[in-house]
Amino acid sequence: LIVSAFMGCCLSQSPSSKGETTPQVVNFPRKDSGKLSVKSVEEVNDVFPLELLPLDLFFAILDYAEDSFSALSLVSRTLQYRVQDYVLSRGTHVGDFAISTKTNRNNELEIAIKLDVRTCDSKLFERRTFIGRPIDLHEILRSRRHGVVIYEMKFEVIDFESMIGFMRRTFGKFLTQVSIECDKGYIYRILEKFAFKKLRITYTTLTDATMSRLLQTIEKHGIDQLSLKIQENETSLPLNELYRLSELVRSLRIEQLSVDQNRHNFMFGIPDLHWDTIILNMFSGKLDKLELVNTDFPGYISYWGVKILEEKLPLLKKEIWFSASCSEYSEECEYDVDGYSVDVIRTSPSHHIISIKHSPRVNEKFEE
């Protein structure tokens, strides 16, 4: 109430009347001026009181006067710029950030972005979208779910650099998690402007070129958690690439998507590998959390492979978290050994899951 009364007073107050003396006042710079100047009251008789406040004090008032933004922006150009500066300086917490592309019927590039923002940040976020909105942005959809507002934006790319600048100003620097639904070079150009530690990406076919871009992104951004969905793998040294991933990230999830393969052992887009040995080797790097999902080819970890993992994973001098699809012939079990919880459970007639987790991590989910 005090802030509202103060704002109302300042918005309705006329400029100071002239006195017998001419006091000196500091005229804080407008957007188009980089210097402070000292002017007499006569020279600033068109200045509103709020324009004379130090910027940090003005911003502190705006923290409690969000509903006054529109009214303030109409008072003067100086206040309009100050409100815009405030909006752009206040970060909003962007959660999941998904990006995909397609070519429209006119053979023009379209980029679709879906992101969520906490409900408490949504008003500020929406104001940011209207500051310097590029002509590329032709649609914004909004929905709500569980304390967040979900925005879907569609860009018809006309000026790529302008579009990237808008994204950086609007979304802020930090993204909680990024999802890429296609692998294009310009997607990585967009992501260069942001900081994020969690990445989800889907590949129809993983190649040497796409793997190279992925590894560069992981190293550049310091990705700590990676989720991969993959159908086919055409990399020249797939095992080397897999071990490289386990050296770079702490948490890794790999899901084998459905493919037309008449095989019992098929994972990471590769047939006929000894995955029990591979898994043990992967935990020799930075990796300490691994989830493997393969409902179509659960036999990639055989009955004996499950037995080997049950025996050897708890012996690693590492507090690991491991969960994987495994052979339909696996024996169900549940026991604790050497500080680890070991479970093999049947989830369907043709599918089991093996879980070996350091006891304090038993209740962790992969996304944590």
Rank of each mutant, 00 (worst) to 15 (best):
I2W: 00
V3Q: 07
F6C: 01
M7N: 06
G8E: 01
C9K: 00
C9Q: 03
L11S: 09
P23Y: 00
N27S: 13
N27C: 08
N27W: 01
D32R: 05
S33W: 11
L36S: 06
V38Y: 03
S40D: 12
V47L: 08
P49F: 11
P49K: 14
L50T: 10
L50P: 10
L50V: 10
L50R: 11
L50S: 12
L52Y: 05
P54V: 13
L55S: 12
L57P: 01
I61R: 14
Y64G: 08
F69P: 03
S73T: 13
R77D: 14
V83N: 03
Q84N: 13
G91I: 10
H93L: 14
F97N: 11
K102Q: 04
K102T: 11
N107H: 06
E108H: 02
E108R: 10
L109A: 11
I111V: 14
D116N: 15
S122G: 13
R133C: 06
P134I: 02
L137M: 06
S143M: 01
H146E: 08
G147Y: 04
V157C: 02
D159L: 01
T170S: 04
G172E: 06
F174A: 03
Q177M: 07
V178N: 03
V178C: 03
S179D: 10
E181F: 04
C182G: 04
Y186C: 10
L191K: 05
F196W: 09
R200T: 14
T202G: 15
T204Y: 15
T204H: 14
L206Y: 15
L206T: 09
L215T: 15
G222D: 06
L226H: 07
K229Y: 07
E232F: 15
E234I: 01
L239I: 14
V249Q: 04
S251K: 09
L257D: 10
V259H: 00
R263L: 07
H264K: 13
N265K: 14
F268C: 06
P271D: 11
L273W: 06
D276G: 07
T277H: 10
L280G: 01
D288I: 09
K289M: 07
V293F: 00
N294L: 00
I301M: 08
V306A: 09
E311C: 02
L316M: 07
E319V: 00
W321Q: 12
W321Y: 07
S323T: 14
C326R: 05
E328R: 02
S330M: 05
E331R: 02
V342T: 04
R346I: 01
P349N: 10
I353G: 12
I353E: 14
S355R: 13
I356K: 02
H358Y: 13
N363M: 08
